[in-house]
């Protein structure tokens, strides 16, 4: 075999070109941008870590058994808990999800799979507008049409307000997850004689499921933390609600009510409730990732 120096000049140049790893200034450039991106990632993480850290620091001391089983304390009392608020949040988020998930997902399936250009454009536009509406307006809206007509603040009203809040998030994330399923996959199914509906249900939806599940988690987490829509709809209660048609406590409104009062007992409970809220959101996200990993 020939040695390197036997090769013609053209080949010599070509070899030199591939063998000289990026000139050091280019590599510096790449390292610089990578480093910069890393730095900003860290910066973006700092608020998150600070929030979690501070809430943990303030809330952990009151995160005892009593907090989970008792009712909120009166202004000058010690101890107490957020049992009714925890249950209230779970119930209202569940109502919100039960209403919005089917609607949102079906709407998104229609949008991405069955609708034609103009209609889809308008619905997408409307959804974007809806997701931009401040959440306090959702509360006022439900107050106006629901609380006023039923003459009572209630868990149902709160759940509906959360549903309106979750709806655009669900439509958008589901719509996007469906649209990134490759066309060739749909054609493969249609080409086997599957109907449009079978294609969507058996091929497109399963392919998009992980992304849709992430969207649902996002919406649920967002709803669990919302205060504004609940102030006008579920209000708050120091006591256990006797049914879904009664004013109902929630963690977020409890935090809103108790965080800035002069009473130490209520303040520390607000921190404990914050911690629970943060942990729930964190847990939900981790759970969603873990489920969709498989």
């Amino acid at each position: 075999m020939a040695t390197a120096s036997d090769f013609p000049p053209r080949a010599q140049a070509a070899m030199a070109a591939v063998a000289s790893r990026p000139a050091s200034h280019q590599r510096l450039g790449e390292a610089f941008w990578t480093g910069l991106a890393g730095l900003f990632t860290l910066l973006a993480l700092i608020p998150l870590l600070l929030v979690i850290g501070y809430v943990l620091y303030r809330g952990a001391s009151r995160l005892d058994f009593e907090a989970f089983v008792s009712l909120p304390p009166m202004p000058l009392a010690e101890g107490g808990g957020f049992a009714n608020a925890l249950v209230g949040t779970v119930v209202m988020v569940a109502i919100g999800a039960a209403v919005s998930v089917p609607f949102g997902i079906l709407a998104a399936i229609y949008l991405s799979e069955f609708s034609s250009g103009a209609v889809a454009r308008w619905i997408r536009f409307a959804t974007n507008v809806l997701s931009g509406v401040p959440s306090i307006l959702m509360g006022v809206f439900i107050y106006g049409i629901f609380v006023v007509t039923t003459r009572s603040f209630s868990a149902i009203a709160g759940g509906f307000a959360l549903a309106v809040l979750m709806l655009p998030i669900l439509v958008r994330t589901t719509d996007e997850s469906l649209q990134i399923v490759p066309v060739s996959l749909r054609w493969a199914a249609l080409g086997m004689g599957a109907s449009k509906l079978q294609t969507v249900v058996r091929v497109v939806l399963p392919a998009a499921l992980p992304a849709i599940a992430t969207g649902i988690t996002l919406a649920v987490a967002r709803a669990a933390g919302e205060t504004a829509p609940l102030i006008f709809t579920a209000l708050f209660s120091q006591y256990w609600a006797r049914g879904l048609w009664e004013p109902t406590a929630s963690l977020s409104v409890l935090i809103y009510n108790f965080a800035a009062v002069p009473y130490a007992g209520q303040r520390s409970l607000a921190w404990a409730a914050s911690l629970i809220l943060v942990l729930t959101v964190l847990l939900a996200s981790i759970l969603a990732r873990w489920v969709t990993r498989k």
Binding site: A11, A19, S20, P22
Partner: peptide, 20 residues
């Protein structure tokens, strides 16, 4: 080898390889 250059050698830049 690309000519006589070991394509998996230490200093080889895979991006340059694919460009050629």
């Amino acid at each position: 080898f690309y000519y006589k250059q070991d394509l998996y050698g230490e200093t080889v830049d895979a991006v340059q390889v694919r460009r050629r």
